[in-house]
């Protein structure tokens, strides 16, 4: 009997305590904000969308190799000595590889930050931009390469010519001229 009254009292009492707490919160300062208008500061090292600075990228492919989800797709073309551009990288050194393709698929990216740490030239960096949603999956594939398709074609051609020449020179040096020329591999 006493237990019964005790539990009835506990019901009543604890409910009042709860109501008191919620009532004080009714007038407390609100913690949410009006998101697109106001924003919380994002720390500068936040790991959000990746950004590549193409003039810094030397095409070493370390980022593509270290990526746990293989979301980075890099293709390079060797810079031939006969290249008329004499390309220079952002830090002033001679460029050895043209980065013809540098795609990051942000649908796959897991924002682990491994690519940024292995990059020797700090060409790839995380930005604080996290609002890049897209209606299509293709829209999430970012093409970072600074080269136009004509440029790529031209560089490829240059490389092919150059390598054919090299091969011919080599073949001529080593033995009799071979009968069949390999096209591409």
């Amino acid at each position: 009997m006493i237990d019964y009254f005790k539990s009835v009292w506990a019901w009543f009492h604890t409910i009042l305590i709860g109501m008191k707490i919620t009532f004080t919160h009714l007038f407390s300062k609100k913690v949410t904000i009006q998101y697109p208008n106001e924003r919380y500061p994002i720390p500068h090292n936040a790991k959000n969308r990746l950004q590549l600075y193409p003039d810094l990228c030397n095409g070493c492919m370390q980022c593509a190799r270290v990526c746990p989800v293989q979301c980075i797709d890099v293709e390079t073309i060797r810079v031939v000595p006969t290249d008329p551009d004499k390309p220079v990288m952002g830090d002033g050194t001679q460029r050895k590889l043209w980065v013809s393709v540098y795609d990051i698929d942000f649908a796959k990216c897991c924002f682990c930050g491994l690519c940024t740490t292995v990059c020797p030239t700090e060409a790839i960096k995380h930005t604080t931009d996290f609002e890049y949603s897209s209606y299509t999956r293709e829209g999430l594939i970012y093409h970072f390469s600074a080269m136009s398709s004509e440029q790529v074609e031209q560089k490829k051609k240059l490389f092919e010519e150059w390598s054919a020449k090299e091969k011919a020179a080599k073949a001529g040096k080593v033995a009799e001229p071979s009968s069949v020329e390999k096209g591409e591999n």
């Binding site: 919380y40 720390p43 090292n45 936040a46 790991k47 897991c110 924002f111 930050g113 491994l114 995380h126």
Partner: peptide, 15 residues
């Protein structure tokens, strides 16, 4: 999570 974000750059999946 803000502390984590400031330290590691991520809120949930830190690496």
């Amino acid at each position: 999570l803000w502390i984590f974000e400031k330290a590691s750059g991520a809120r949930l999946l830190f690496n």
